[in-house]
Design a protein around this nucleic acid. Structure first.
Lengths: 140, 140
DNA sequence: ATATATGCAAACGGTTTGCAGGGAG
DNA sequence: CTCCCTGCAAACCGTTTGCATATAT
């Protein structure tokens, strides 16, 4: 838990608990709904404030997709993954690729750029959606 | 020009003209200012509508950074570049890396995912800012 | 007791939309 | 002459903030 000079409150406990249950790709709004469905009233503002605290504490990470929605995930120290985003159903899959990570480091160091983080998004159509839609035009 | 069943108007001409002059990393707000500085009044809404049309026509591409700002660039058919974003000064540099592009295609095809596009962002501190700031803590 | 956290509602910033008037074809 | 485009202002959406109250320590 966030024992970083933060008070422990029942809403924070609930938020963290539900976050962990959702266990990936958490959106503030959804978390808000899930927390409130089961009893206690927690304001949306508190959800956002808590998510930001957790992010600052390095416990969770944020990904901003091209459609503007923001998704949070439990931080996985040491490793990293990126996302395959289906533009048809909105589904998000993950992948890891050490070779790409390595190339990124090379690119950064070539330019004397200090890398703090990176995000790689692959946008397209997942297998499921290809089955559903006989043909498909491209999108950005 | 966008001869895709679109009417040619003086505001559209001005927008495109200024867009090309800025020649990279165009933000709607900036474009709005530049177009209006030199004469004619063009509404922000028209800027957005035109940018969206150009995007749909495949003439420009949009990148959404993690801080929410959205940047447009002339489409470069056939090739692609990605971005190094400095979290200190906001500067954006570009790079191309064929090996990374290749790996992405492999990842997608392994998962039977049809790739439409992708975005890779490297976030960190550029050389200039490293000089200015003796020490620096990390950011997401 | 004291500082921090909460809920609410209002503010925000970037983007989109509805509408009445204007201009391209 | 018709339909598309424009400007304006209002609506939107996700997120943040101010404030008075409630709560953890």
């Amino acid at each position: 838990m966030a024992q970083n000079q933060l008070k422990q409150t029942k809403q924070r406990r609930m938020i963290v608990e539900e976050f962990v249950k959702m266990n990936a790709h958490v959106q503030a709004e959804q978390l808000y709904i899930r927390v409130n469905v089961r009893g206690a009233k927690v304001g949306l503002a508190t959800i956002y404030r808590t998510l930001n605290l957790l992010k600052e504490a390095g416990l969770i990470e944020q990904c901003v997709f091209s459609d503007g929605r923001s998704v949070f995930e439990l931080a996985t120290p040491g490793q990293h993954h990126d996302h395959l985003v289906c533009l048809d159903c909105g589904d998000i899959a993950e992948f890891e690729n050490e070779a790409i990570e390595q190339l990124q480091k090379e690119i950064a160091s070539e330019r004397q750029f200090i890398l703090y983080s990176h995000r790689l998004y692959l946008y397209g159509s997942c297998h499921k959606c290809q089955m559903k839609n006989p043909t498909k035009a491209s999108v950005a």
